Structures are given as C-alpha cells and as structure tokens.
Computed example of a mutant assay.
Amino acid sequence: MEHEIRALTARLVAQRWLPRKDPMVRRALIDETFRAELESRLAGVGLHLLDNPYAAHVAVGLTPEALEPTFGAGREYQSSNMGLTRDEIALLVVLWALIILPKRERQVTRQNLANEGQEELFASEQPVAHGAEVSAGVSEASLIADFGPRLGGKTKVRNFMLGKLARLGFIERRNNMILEGPLLDVALDYRLMADRIIHGTLAEVLAEAGHPLPEEDAFAKAEAEDLAQDDIADDEGAF
C-alpha cells in the first residue's frame, strides 16, 4: 500500500485533479484505511482531498490552516487565491450557476441529458450519475450576449476571461460551447454557494438574462444526498 499511497499523493499534487474512475482514486474512495493514509500524507504538506460524490473528478486544496501562511502576503488573497479579478470571479460564479446547478438537479432526480423532460420508470432506483451524461454546456455566444456588457465587453470575456478560467481547469471550451472543467464542481463549495445564489441577487440577474435556476426543492434533496455519501458509494458499487 505504501507505493500506491506515495504514487497517488504525488499525482494529485502534480496534476491537481484526477478522474474518479482512476483505479487508485476509486480505491481511496471506498477503502477507509487507504483514504485515511492519503489524507494524512496530504495534511503533512497543508493539503486535503477535495471530493464531491456528484463530481467526475477529485482534486487537492489547501487546508484552512494553510491558507493564510500560503496566500496571506498577497493583496489579491482577499478575493481570490488563484489570481482572479473581481470580474473573473463573477463570471466563474455565473458559469457555476448555469452548469452545476442544473446538473445537480438532474443527478438528484436521476435523469440523464437524453431523458431530460421525460418520465423515467424506476428513476429512484438508478444510481446517482456524474460526468458528461448529466453536465450540459453553455453557448459561448449566448453567455457573451447576456453577460458581456456587465463584465467588460465581448472581447474581454472571450479572449481573456474565458481563456483564463479554462487554463485554471474550471471550464473547457469546445465548438463554441463552454463545458464543465475538472475543478468546477469540486473547487467551489456547493453547500455554501447554492443557497446564496438561489436566494440572492444572482438569481434575479440570471432570470433577467433568460437563465432561470432550477426549482429550490431539488437543492434540498441534493444536500440530503450529500449527507448520505456512504449510501451513494454503495449504490454506485466501486464508482
């Protein structure tokens, strides 16, 4: 086990994220002893595993105790520890709301994109899905038309802001579509953000732009599902 732990720790630190389907990641998710040793190794350098049962990837992040010593010297730390400006953070939150919130609703209701809007027999017996089959993209042209004027204009959003979010791993850009990146569903705290977005000003901004958020009760279900992570793991087998 020593070799596997060392290798997985090194890969997480070097690559920042790994897919849940990776054999060693799967072991860390279902083997309590292996997971505890991995967390111990990461904690030794101020890191911890970022894991969301609904996300297709896992990642590493700084522990709360390591945040200030690591980033406290920089003025930008008050808003972002990844060098993001206020406009870029605003765009990131908008994309999170447009991509992750509808995705979570599909996962909670056990619906794939192909079945969206259709009744599904025995839907409650299906495992919680994650990954491409439930994560829809956002049209780049539509996003810029709706939010570009609020964020500095078309050129700034398309050529600079979206490019930066893609390089950091939050999004992927393919065929003029903006898709979920490896970090979008694990680096941003769902439990903290969902309620603030649904009940906050952003919900009104999105609705005005023609992007109404999913129904509120879906998110209450999602929070209950998150608390039952062990049950989800059993339903999914070995992930």
Rank of each mutant, 00 (worst) to 15 (best):
M82H: 11
I30L: 14
V45W: 10
T9L: 04
I5A: 01
L18P: 04
M82G: 03
V157F: 01
I197C: 03
K103F: 05
L8W: 02
V138C: 06
E65L: 07
G148N: 03
T33K: 11
V25Q: 01
L165Y: 07
L92Q: 09
I232V: 15
H3P: 11
H130M: 08
E208C: 08
Q126K: 14
L188A: 05
V58H: 00
Q118P: 00
E68D: 14
L121N: 06
R20G: 02
G237Y: 10
L38D: 01
A123R: 09
R35C: 06
E116N: 08
Q111I: 04
A129H: 05
S79H: 14
E125R: 15
A132P: 08
A132M: 11
F160P: 00
D146H: 09
L206F: 09
L179H: 13
E65K: 14
F219L: 02
M1Q: 09
V25W: 02
D51I: 05
M82L: 14
I100R: 05
E37F: 07
R191E: 14
E68A: 15
G83N: 10
G200N: 13
L42K: 06
F219Q: 02
P69G: 01
A73L: 11
E88R: 09
L47T: 06
R196C: 08
I197S: 00
V138R: 09
L18E: 12
A123C: 11
D235M: 14
E223N: 08
E140Q: 14
G169Y: 03
T201W: 10
Q111D: 06
A136L: 10
D146A: 14
H199W: 08
R35G: 12
T109H: 14
P212W: 05
L179N: 04
D235L: 13
G237V: 00
I89T: 13
E225F: 14
A203Q: 03
L202H: 10
D189A: 05
R41Q: 10
G148K: 01
A224Y: 04
Q118N: 10
S135D: 12
I144E: 02
L168N: 12
A194F: 04
Q229W: 11
R11S: 15
P127V: 07
P69E: 02
I232S: 10
R110D: 14
A224L: 10
K156T: 08
A123L: 06
A123T: 05
D87P: 03
N176M: 06
V138Q: 04
Y54S: 07
G163W: 05
A220K: 07
R196H: 10
W17S: 03
E204M: 09
L188C: 07
A187Q: 07
H211W: 13
A233D: 15
D189G: 08
G181P: 00
I100M: 12
L168M: 08
L62E: 12
R26P: 05
M1K: 07
D230T: 12
G131Q: 08
L101D: 02
H199K: 15
A220E: 13
N159Q: 06
G210L: 12
